[in-house]
Design a protein around this nucleic acid. Structure first.
Lengths: 262, 262
DNA sequence: CGATTAGTTGACTTGGATCAAAATTCGTGG
DNA sequence: CCACGAATTTTGATCCAAGTCAACTAATCG
């Protein structure tokens, strides 16, 4: 098969209507397998026994590639799937009637998206890929059926949601009572911890989001984010080269912002 | 029985250790009954069929009175119960290491508290009564057992959590991208809607929380809250008498802040 | 290689914070 | 039931952190 043929095939795959891509037949071609997934200890099956994880495999989650800038689901879309990030980064955001946007979260490999859709049966936020990504689509109804048979499985979604609640609480604390330096530091330290848990460097990483997106998430303007980065650099805390960040002394940086916090 | 005797008995009841108050024996004395509760369409059994609601009754939720200023649970306390507010008002809050507080929510009759404890098995926030209150203590483990037998019941907690997620999203939007007038207006309109759903006036109500607590919740200082109330009054939008609030033209007030929003 | 987008930096403005003081309400013990 | 001290609320004066506006640079891409 020539390179041109592969390219053409890829193009066809990309243009499959969403509904079709979720059909068992299409899914079977590249179904996700939790048991062998390198993210299994971070993702949905985290803390689950082998039997339950095997049951998840039986659901044959469809895998899908979402290219940079594309939208996985819109606020208001019918909710039917939870999405697990396999690779890449997403943002979630809300829109006010007048057009103002608020980024409510960033999601990296092993994290779940879409839990806010359970309440009303419609997605409550919009999810956009910030780079080329791959996701698993988890059919929520089938997940609930599985939960009927297993107490461990049943607690799973509940616990994931509660974790999300705790995460949002801390973001409220950030938005409600921290200054700009604290906000940016908290953001970087949070990312650092998540990268570390995935085996990446905790002190050096590449941001996948723009200054404007960071600003929206932190309740700041993009100019303030940029200035705060510069200030951290001048204070000798960070090395900033565009979106490439290096925390010079992670221990000191953490300590400084965990204890001080004003 | 003399008044003094009653008073003495009440004092004894108040000093029963928490663990004892949760014993089935103690609970039986004043067990809650969802089927006949006037809050059943707002609270836990909302949307549930009669059979499932009956199953809830079988759990015999203990009822407890919490006096103004007392704490129902502390951040870090072992999580074992969800709490439904029967009457009165609670606040939830987080504390930063340096003592700064952030109020994360207010809870009135029919609302659930404690969902953020599911994630770690410990409460992630502190719940304090803002007036004399009454709650139902819902044993979480038993609720999960019930859920094993009923799909509807199983979805219940999940949906309640998701609703909470949506609520927190909108609070993030508020904290991240609204000015002080919009924040206070959004707060009042939200309270108004919740009172209305409970059969109270949507345009006239009594605030149970201080200016400082409102400020913490909205990410403002108490002085700014006070000034914004005064400003709304001067603009002819509200009548404010201490904690008693009257929205003069609810339709106009709603429209003005739903459309404008800046 | 222009044209668009992202990021930085500077100058200036401002909304809400801070500090301070007075007015009002509340709680408690005598 | 009253009085006194503590807590809450309002209002004014001042300040400053972050927003706004603007100019410029650097990277990205048809």
């Amino acid at each position: 098969m020539s390179a041109a043929t592969i390219e053409a095939a890829a193009r066809v795959l990309r243009t499959i209507p969403i509904a079709a891509a979720y059909q068992p037949r299409a899914a079977a071609q590249q179904a996700a397998n939790c048991t062998t997934c390198h993210l299994r200890d971070l993702c949905l099956p985290c803390g689950m026994n082998e039997i339950d994880t095997g049951r998840l495999d039986a659901l044959m989650f469809a895998r899908r590639r979402i290219k940079a800038g594309q939208i996985l689901y819109h606020e208001g879309d019918r909710f039917a799937f939870l999405y697990a990030v396999r690779s890449g980064t997403f943002k979630s955001n809300l829109t006010l009637p007048d057009g103002r946007e608020q980024v409510t979260g960033f999601h990296i490999a092993g994290e779940l998206m879409g839990l806010d859709g359970v309440a009303q049966g419609n997605h409550a936020s919009t999810a956009t890929a910030l780079e080329d990504t791959e996701i698993c689509a988890i059919p929520y109804a089938q997940l609930c059926e599985l939960a009927q048979g297993s107490a461990g499985m049943q607690q799973l979604v509940t616990r994931l949601m509660s974790r999300e609640l705790v995460r949002e609480h801390s973001l409220m604390l950030l938005l409600g009572s921290m200054n700009s330096e604290e906000r940016l530091a908290a953001f970087l330290l949070n990312l650092s911890r998540r990268y570390k848990a995935r085996g990446y460097s905790a002190s050096e990483f590449h941001l996948r989001m723009s200054r404007a997106e960071i600003g929206s998430y932190l309740g700041l303007t993009l100019e303030t984010v940029s200035r705060t980065f510069s200030s951290f650099q001048q204070q000798g805390l960070l090395e900033v080269d565009k979106r490439h960040i290096r925390i010079l002394d992670l221990v000191a940086f953490t300590a400084s912002f965990e204890i001080r916090l004003h």
